[in-house]
Simulated scan of single mutants.
Amino acid sequence: MSAPDLPQGDSKNGSKAGAVGSQPHLPVMLAEVLTALQPVADGIFVDGTFGAGGYTTALLEAGAAHVYAFDRDPTAIASGQALLARFPDRLTLIEGQFSNLADHLQAIHAPAPDGVVLDIGVSSMQIDNAERGFSFQKDGPLDMRMSNSGPTAADIVNQMSHGELAHVLKFLGEERQAGRIASAILKRRAKQPLETTGDLAETVTTIIPRKAKDRIHPATRTFQALRIFVNRELEELAMGLSGAEDQLKVGGRLVIVTFHSLEDRIAKTFFNTRSETRLGGSRHAPELAAIAPPSFQLKSRKALAASDAECQENPRARSAKLRVGERTEHTAFALDMAALGVPSLPGFQGLDQ
């Protein structure tokens, strides 16, 4: 999936980067994103995953008239105040989930955007802070919440049933040993609750011992699964795509950068189902079927990958895939999570944020 010992294998390396914060964050596929969005002097753009501000900064420096930047992480919004001071009349920072971007934009009467970019995954700023609990590289509280609210990963592993936990690890982590890992977690928590990232990583390695030749830590998939579940990332992605479809002006571009197969599969399905002529109606009333014209025109059927040069400079770009669609004049499709391939997962009391 990605570089050795990465906690999820899909980090953006703080990929919203450079201008905000002290770390040398590198925006992933920045040149390709700008080419796809085609920022112009009178353009309105939405950065649904602000992070450290890399894409937003580049759009503003390229002459975009205004950028509406979202992030559910309050620390990212706080870090963005320096950029806001630099572009006070051209930047709006919004603390909120990009799944609700349509509601947010309508509430502030924002113009229909010329482009929306969504860079999916966890940022290096979150990984590098041990207190956020995203990584097993540094021991910290088993948290993983992007928004700092709602149940933590510790709540999940200490309270979920064996079957539910195994289901989450299998489908969101694509972990072949999901059942055995779930059993080990239940055995461990019967003695003492799992409280730290180290507790969880150690438990996983009792089932999958680490070998010297391993490029990826055995706990990578488990951490990925829990992070995605805690933050409802796949549901967020599907809702964000639908919201962008609803808000984009005719000719506007939707750009998605993903970092692992689960996300890319949803993005690919979204664009494919909306770029072909589809029949409406149902099998129960085929005679009432009507043509549903495409809401997007694809710039390419294949996803773009990062260049070899970028992958050499930033190894975390190796798993990145970029997809682009251009909005047509036709009506947006209704959101159907199952049709987009969002898996049905167990609920967890209090998970709604």
Rank of each mutant, 00 (worst) to 15 (best):
A225M: 04
I228W: 00
T206R: 15
V168S: 05
A212F: 08
L169C: 09
E195I: 09
A166E: 03
A225W: 00
S183Y: 10
T205L: 10
M160A: 12
E164A: 09
E195K: 14
L194F: 02
K213I: 12
I156Q: 03
T152Q: 06
R227Y: 04
G150F: 09
R221G: 01
F171P: 06
R215M: 10
E202N: 15
P218E: 07
R227P: 03
D199H: 11
R188N: 12
T220G: 06
E202F: 09
D199M: 09
R221I: 08
T220D: 02
L194E: 01
K187E: 15
P209F: 07
S149V: 15
T206S: 10
R189V: 11
R215W: 09
R176K: 15
M160I: 04
T203A: 13
N158S: 04
L194M: 12
I228H: 00
A219I: 00
L172R: 07
L165G: 02
S147Q: 13
A201M: 07
L172A: 05
K170A: 15
K211S: 12
H162F: 05
E164G: 11
L226M: 01
A219K: 05
G163K: 09
A219T: 06
I181Q: 04
A225R: 03
P209N: 11
G198H: 05
A154F: 05
P193Q: 03
F229K: 00
A219E: 08
L172E: 01
E202L: 13
L226I: 10
H162S: 06
I216G: 07
